[in-house]
Amino acid sequence: MRQDNRADDSFLRDLYAAYHGSLLRYVMKVGGIDSQAAEDLVQETFLRAWRHSATLRESAGRVRPWLLRVARNLVIDASRARNARPVETHCQPVDAAGVTDSAEQVVEARCLAFALAELSPVHREILVHLHCLDRSIGDTARSMGIPLGTVKSRNHYALRELRRALTRHGIH
């Protein structure tokens, strides 16, 4: 048994030395693949030769055609495997910090709309002028035709009522 293993190892070293270069060029040419992929297929070819070394030693004249046939079959199998899978793309990973989840904002906006609808029209109008349209107290007073103090007072009470309504709707 040990003698057979030594003979197999010696036989495989001789095969490798004699056929590695030409087999590698053949696989690259037939497969149209890079040297690393071709080297993998050549290694698999020699692994199969090692498994069948007893048979190959007996038919010394037919070793090269056997190696070429095995290599060609491996190239075909590799090509079929590549074609059976979807094409691999190399995309950059999505930056999780760049993607915002707007679901919470939508819920808050809906709650704010319901809370605003509960306010009196006068309070709602003051809040819209001051906080939605971003007008100053003076501009709001002029556009509504009321004194500055009234705008300030209505804003104070409108904000207090809005906070209560938002709390009822679950926004703190």
Rank of each mutant, 00 (worst) to 15 (best):
R164I: 08
G32W: 05
A115Y: 02
R154W: 11
R80E: 01
H156I: 00
A165V: 07
R51I: 02
F46S: 13
L116H: 03
L162G: 08
Q3F: 09
H131T: 04
K152E: 11
A141E: 02
T45V: 11
F46D: 14
G145H: 05
C111Q: 15
R124D: 08
Y26H: 15
D101L: 00
F46T: 14
F114H: 14
T100N: 09
A84E: 04
T140F: 02
L47T: 13
L112T: 11
F46P: 14
M144R: 13
R135T: 01
R2Y: 14
L119T: 11
A141Q: 02
G31P: 12
G61P: 08
A78M: 01
D134L: 05
T167V: 12
Y157D: 01
G145F: 01
T45R: 00
R85H: 07
A81C: 09
S153F: 03
I137N: 07
H129S: 03
V87T: 15
R69Q: 15
G145M: 02
L166D: 08
R48V: 07
L116W: 00
R160M: 10
R164N: 10
L12C: 15
V63H: 12
E88S: 14
M1I: 13
A38N: 10
T140Q: 02
K152V: 10
R51F: 07
Q36M: 01
S53P: 04
S59Y: 15
P86Y: 03
S102A: 11
H123A: 13
R85W: 01
D134E: 02
D101M: 00
H156C: 04
I33Q: 09
V42E: 05
E39M: 03
S22V: 14
L159Q: 13
R163C: 03
S59T: 15
E125S: 12
V63N: 08
A113K: 04
R6D: 15
E118L: 06
L119W: 02
R124W: 03
T140M: 06
I76L: 06
V70N: 01
H129F: 00
R160E: 09
R62L: 09
K29I: 01
D139C: 05
R13T: 09
R62I: 13
T100M: 01
V128Q: 05
C111R: 13
L24M: 08
L133D: 11
D101G: 07
L148Q: 05
A113G: 00
H52M: 07
R160S: 06
V106G: 06
H123R: 09
D14M: 10
L130Y: 04
